[in-house]
Design a protein around this nucleic acid. Structure first.
Length: 865
RNA sequence: GCCGCGGUGGCGGAAUAGGUAGACGCAAGGGACUUAAAAUCCCUCGGCUGAAUAAGUCGUGCCGGUUCGAUUCCGGCCCGCGGCACCA
C-alpha cells in the first residue's frame, strides 16, 4: 500500500495534540534538564516561511532526541505579537492589529502542528497579552526604580514614515530598520534604558563584553556585538582656547606670543579624545563638530560667524544618509579669530568645524594629525594645512608625501620623545597629561543607551504617570497591567495614539489624587522580547514574572537557534536584561543563552533571496501538500549544514521522499517489500517469526546509532540523514546476499529480513527527523501500544563499532599502489611483510630497496624508495 | 577600509588530532519491467589516455613552504558572501 502522507500526518497531528504530556516539560521531574529554544516568531500574515521551518525542525529534532535520551526537555514556543508591521498593516487595511495578530497566530500554530513540531504549548506566551505585558511593564518599573530607566532630551532618530523614534540599533546606516526609509535627527525627550552601565563587569555580573568569552556563540555574532559596543582605549585631554585680542599665556604663565590671550579664566577648553596620543606632536589643527555647544559659546569671539553659521545650518539640513554619502569629500569652515594651544608643542593651531566629526562620540572634537590619519590627511590637503610627520615605520621607509602613515612606529620630531615606539609613547604621554592635570587615559564606546519609547499604538504602554504636583510617578505594581485601550484611533500622527484617548490619558495621581496624565508612549517591541525566554519557565505565574525556583530549574537556555539578523538588537538587549536581573539578585546566571546557532538563509531556486517582489517564494504549505511534512523536514535538514546559506532545489526533495517511501515499502508484501504475503507479515509483526540480521548489517546499524547520535548533538543533520540512508540501502544490498558484481537485481528476497528489533532501532533513529512516518510504522504497522516517542534512544555496542578488518592502502612514495585486507590490529612487522609481498608492490618497486617504510597503525603502509 | 565566513564533480554537499578525495542525494546517460506512461528496480557517471568494470595520469581557487604523505598545517595572493563603516 502506498504511503498516504496526507491521511497519516493528519492522524498523528491529532494524536499528539490529544497527548500533550508526550512533549511537555516536567516541573517536578528530577531528570537532567535541557532548555531548547527557538526565537519566537513575529506572527506575520504571510505565515511560516522556509527559514522558520529550517530552524524549528532543527530544534525539534534535538528536543525529540534528548527526550528519548532521558532528558527533561523544555521546548516552548510563543509569539512576538506587538510591533510596527502589524500596526502598519492595520493602518493600511483599517483592521485592528489585535484582530490580524490573533488570526496570524492561529495560522502559525496550525502550520507548526502541520510540521509536527513538538512544542509544550501549555507554556505559550504572547507578548501582546495583558498577562504577559503586565510583566514587561513590571520590568520597566524595576529598571526605573534602580535608576536604569530614565527620561532624557536629545537628538534621536526619527522615521517620518513610521512616525516614531527608533533606537540606534534600529537606524543603522541612517535607514529605518522597519520601512527602509531615511531617518532624520530630531530633538525629543524620550525614555532610555541604561545599557551602557553593563558594558564592563559590575560586581559579580559579567559585562556585555567579557560575558561573550564564556558563551558558545558563532564567532561572527560575538564579533558583531563587540563591534557594536565599539570599545576603544585612548586618552582625553584639554586644550586651551586663545583669542586674537591680547597676550597669550602658556599654561604655566609665561608669555609667548603677543596677539593671543589665554582664556583659561573663562573655562573655555577644547576637550579631545584620541587613540593615537603618540602622534600628538603632529597635530597641526583641531576639528570640532558643528553641533558642538562650544561653537555657540565662542560665537562672540568668532570673526567669521556668518560663514560658520551658514555651515552649521547646512549640516543640520543634511540627513545622516547624505553625510555618509559624502565620506570622501571633506567639508568644513575655520573658526576664525580663535586658535587652540597644543599643550605638547605649545604652538597655536587653527580650529575648524567639520561635519565628519561626530558630536555624540568622544568629546565631539578631535585633534587632527594629517600625517597619521587618513581623514585628517584629506582635510589638510583640501584646506592647505601643514602635514608634520612624527611617526616613522620601524624600517624607516614610510612616507607621508602621498598618504597618511597610520601604523604604529617610532617617534620623530617629537622633542624628548624621539625614538620611543608608539606604544611606549602613548603610555608616557598619558602619564604626562595626568601629571599636568590636563587629561588622562580614557575609554570610549560606540554603544549608547537604549531608546525604548515609541510614539505608536501597538506596544506595551509605559507605566508612568505625570502629576502636576508630584511630577513623574511610577504606576504602583498593584495597578499593573496598564491596559492598552482597544478603542483608539491608531492612525499615526507623530504623537502617540494613546494621547488621544481621554479615558486612557486623563487619570488621577496614585500618590496625591490630583489631576494627572498617563505616559502615552509605548515600549519598543524589543523590550518584550528581551525577557520572554524567562517566562517559559513559569508562564502561568501571576505573582512574579517567574518563580525563583522555576528559573533555577530551567534557565539558562542550553541551545538557542534563530536568525543571524538578530546579532545586535535582540541578542544584545536580552543579555542586558539578564545582567540587570543578575545584578539585582533575581537570577544566578548572567548570560541567557549558553549556546547559540543561526540557521543559514534558504535562497530561492533561482539563487536569489526569496521575496514577494521576485515571486520566487517557496511556501511550506504547498510543499507539505505535495510531499508531506516529513519530507519537508528531512529535505531542509539534508540540504547542507544548518548555518550555511543554501539554495532550494525542488527536485532535491524527491530524494528524501524516495527514502521515506523505500522505508515504508520495505514492510510490504509487494515486490519491493520483505514479506511473502499478509500472513507472513502478520506473523513477523506478532513476533511469531523473526528475521536474522547479518553481522555486516548489525555492524552498520551500530555505527549508525553512534553517528546519528553524535551528529544530532553537533547539529550536523545532513550527515545524520545520509547515514540513515546508507543503513536503509544496506537492508536490501546486504540482506539479499547477492554480490553486487553479478549485476543482478538488488531487490529484497521475500522472507529474508533483519531482526524485527533491529528494524525498530532504525525507525527510532529516524523518528526525530520524520516523526509522522515513524509513529505510523511504530503504532500503525508494528502495532505497538503507545507513542514511539516514549521509547528509549538506542545505545550502540562499542565492540561492533570498531572494525575488525580494514582495507589497508599500500602507498609507494605517497601513491596508492595496492589495497590489502588486513586485521585492524595488524602489527607493524606483519603489515610491512604483507605489503612487500604483494605482487603489485613488487612490480612498482622494480627491485629497488625501500629507503624507509612508514606504518600507521590501523591505517596504511607507505614505502619510500 | 575593518571584522567574520567561505572557495571540492553538471548541482546540493561528504571527508580535516595530515593518511584510499568525491559519502549521501539531485540531475544526466544506458538498461529491466510495461501495450504505453507513471512508479519501481539495475548499471555508468571528475578530466585526460584507453575497447576496457586492465592500467596509467592530472585533479579540492592561485603560487610557494613543511612532510614519507597536504582538501586538511604555515606564508603570500586572487575571488565570492555576510556584517560594520568618517567612532578619531
Amino acid at each position: 500500500m502506498k504511503y498516504d502522507h496526507k491521511k497519516i500526518e493528519k492522524k498523528w497531528q491529532k494524536y499528539w495534540a490529544e497527548n500533550p504530556k508526550l512533549f511537555a516539560a516536567d516541573d517536578k521531574s528530577d531528570k537532567p534538564k535541557q532548555y531548547i529554544l527557538d526565537m519566537f516568531p513575529y506572527p506575520s500574515g504571510d505565515g511560516l516561511h522556509t527559514g522558520h521551518v529550517e530552524s524549528y525542525t532543527a530544534t525539534d529534532i534535538i528536543s525529540r532526541y534528548l527526550r528519548m535520551s532521558g532528558f527533561n526537555v523544555l521546548h516552548p514556543q510563543g509569539f512576538d505579537a506587538f510591533g510596527l508591521p502589524a500596526e502598519n498593516y492595520a493602518i493600511k487595511t483599517k483592521i485592528h492589529p489585535a484582530e490580524t495578530t490573533k488570526k496570524a497566530i492561529t495560522n502559525f500554530k496550525k502550520q507548526m502542528n502541520m510540521m509536527g513540531f513538538s512544542y509544550d504549548w501549555s507554556r505559550e506566551v504572547i507578548s501582546a497579552d495583558p498577562e504577559y505585558y503586565k510583566w514587561t511593564q513590571w520590568f520597566f518599573l524595576l529598571l526605573y526604580k534602580n535608576g536604569l530607566a530614565f527620561k532624557s532630551k536629545g537628538k534621536v532618530n526619527w522615521c517620518d514614515s513610521c512616525q516614531t523614534v527608533l533606537a540606534n540599533e534600529q537606524a543603522e546606516g541612517g535607514v529605518c530598520d522597519r520601512c527602509g526609509k531615511p531617518v532624520r535627527q530630531k530633538d525629543l525627550e524620550q525614555w532610555y534604558f541604561k545599557i551602557t552601565d553593563f558594558i564592563e563587569d559590575t560586581g559579580k555580573t559579567s559585562g556585555l563584553l567579557s560575558g561573550l568569552d564564556k558563551i558558545d556563540w558563532p564567532e561572527s555574532t560575538k564579533a558583531g556585538q563587540r563591534n557594536w559596543i565599539g570599545k576603544s582605549e585612548g586618552a582625553q585631554f584639554k586644550m586651551e582656547i586663545v583669542t586674537k585680542d591680547s597676550v597669550i599665556l602658556s599654561p604655566k604663565g609665561e608669555e609667548s606670543k603677543r596677539s593671543f590671550v589665554n582664556t583659561q579664566d573663562d573655562k573655555l577648553h577644547l576637550s579631545v579624545f584620541t587613540t593615537r596620543l603618540d602622534t600628538v606632536f603632529g597635530m597641526t589643527f583641531a576639528l570640532i563638530a558643528p553641533e558642538h555647544k562650544l561653537v555657540q559659546e565662542l560665537k562672540s569671539k568668532i570673526t567669521n560667524w556668518s560663514e560658520v553659521e551658514k555651515y552649521i545650518v547646512e549640516t543640520k539640513k543634511k540627513s545622516e544618509l547624505q553625510r555618509m554619502a559624502e565620506v570622501k569629500e571633506k567639508t568644513g569652515v575655520e573658526l576664525e579669530g580663535i586658535k587652540v594651544l597644543n599643550p605638547f608643542t605649545k604652538k597655536t593651531i587653527p580650529l575648524f568645524a567639520s561635519d565628519f566629526v561626530l558630536a555624540h562620540y568622544g568629546t565631539g572634537a578631535v585633534m587632527a594629525v594629517p600625517a597619521h590619519d587618513e581623514r585628517d590627511f584629506a582635510f589638510a590637503k583640501k584646506f592647505g594645512l601643514p602635514i608634520d610627520e612624527v611617526v616613522k615605520s620601524v624600517d624607516g621607509k614610510s612616507s607621508v608625501a602621498k598618504e597618511a602613515y597610520t601604523e604604529d612606529g617610532v617617534l620623530i620630531n617629537s622633542g624628548e620623545h624621539n625614538g620611543l615606539t608608539s606604544a611606549e609613547a602613548r603610555k608616557k604621554l598619558t602619564q604626562w597629561l595626568q601629571k599636568e592635570k590636563i587629561g588622562q587615559g580614557t575609554i570610549n564606546y560606540k554603544l549608547r543607551d537604549w531608546l525604548v519609547s515609541r510614539q505608536r499604538y501597538w506596544g506595551a504602554p509605559i507605566p508612568i504617570i505625570y502629576c502636576d504636583k508630584c511630577g513623574e510617578v511610577p504606576v504602583p505594581e498593584k495597578d499593573l497591567p496598564v491596559l492598552l485601550p482597544n478603542d483608539v484611533d491608531f492612525m499615526p500622527t507623530g504623537e502617540s495614539p494613546l494621547a488621544i484617548s481621554k479615558k486612557f490619558h486623563d487619570i488621577k495621581c496614585p500618590k496625591c489624587g490630583a489631576k494627572a496624565r498617563r505616559e502615552s508612549d509605548t515600549m519598543d517591541t524589543f523590550v518584550c522580547s528581551s525577557w520572554y525566554y524567562l517566562r517559559y519557565a513559569d508562564s502561568q505565574n501571576d505573582k512574579e514574572f517567574a518563580s525563583k525556583e522555576m528559573l533555577k530549574k530551567w534557565l539558562p537556555v542550553d541551545l538557542y537557534v534563530g536568525g543571524a539578523e538578530h546579532t545586535v538588537l535582540h541578542l544584545l538587549y536580552s543579555r542586558f536584561f539578564t545582567k540587570v536581573l543578575h545584578k539585582l539578585g533575581y537570577i544566578d546566571f548572567d548570560e541567557p543563552f549558553s549556546k547559540m546557532r543561526h540557521q543559514g538563509i534558504i535562497l530561492a531556486p533561482d539563487g536569489r533571496k526569496m521575496s514577494k517582489s521576485w515571486g520566487n517564494i517557496i511556501n511550506p504549505d504547498d510543499v507539505v501538500a505535495e510531499y508531506g511534512a516529513d519530507a519537508l523536514r528531512l529535505y531542509e535538514m539534508f540540504m547542507g549544514p544548518l548555518e550555511e546559506m543554501k539554495p532550494w532545489n525542488t527536485k532535491g526533495i524527491v530524494g528524501v521522499k524516495r527514502f521515506l517511501d523505500k522505508t515504508w515499502n520495505y514492510l510490504s508484501a509487494d515486490y519491493t517489500g520483505i514479506f511473502i504475503d499478509n500472513n507472513d507479515r502478520n506473523q513477523w509483526i506478532e513476533g511469531k517469526i523473526d528475521g536474522a540480521t547479518s553481522r555486516e548489517t548489525e555492524v552498520l546499524l551500530h555505527k549508525t546509532i553512534k553517528k546519528v547520535s553524535e551528529d544530532i548533538e553537533s547539529l550536523k543533520f545532513n550527515t545524520a540523514i545520509s547515514q540513515l540512508m546508507v543503513l536503509r540501502n544496506s537492508f536490501y544490498e546486504i540482506e539479499a546476499k547477492r554480490p553486487i558484481s553479478e549485476k543482478s537485481y538488488i531487490e529484497p528476497i521475500k522472507g529474508q529480513r533483519i531482526k524485527k528489533s533491529d528494524f525498530e532501532k532504525f525507525i527510532i533513529l529516524l523518528a526525530p527527523f520524520a516523526p509522522f512516518i515513524a509513529e505510523e510504522i511504530w503504532q500503525g504497522v508494528l502495532k505497538h501500544k503507545g507513542s514511539i516517542f516514549n521509547e528509549e534512544w538506542p545505545k550502540y555496542n562499542k565492540d561492533l563499532v570498531n572494525d575488525e578488518t580494514i582495507q589497508m592502502p599500500i602507498q609507494i612514495n605517497g601513491k596508492v599502489r595496492a589495497v590489502l585486507a588486513a586485521s585492524a590490529t595488524i602489527s607493524e612487522e606483519d603489515a610491512k611483510k604483507l605489503a612487500l609481498s604483494d605482487s603489485n608492490v613488487i612490480k612498482w618497486l622494480e627491485g629497488k630497496e625501500p629507503k624507509k617504510v612508514i606504518f600507521v597503525k590501523g591505517r596504511l603502509v607507505n614505502i619510500v624508495v
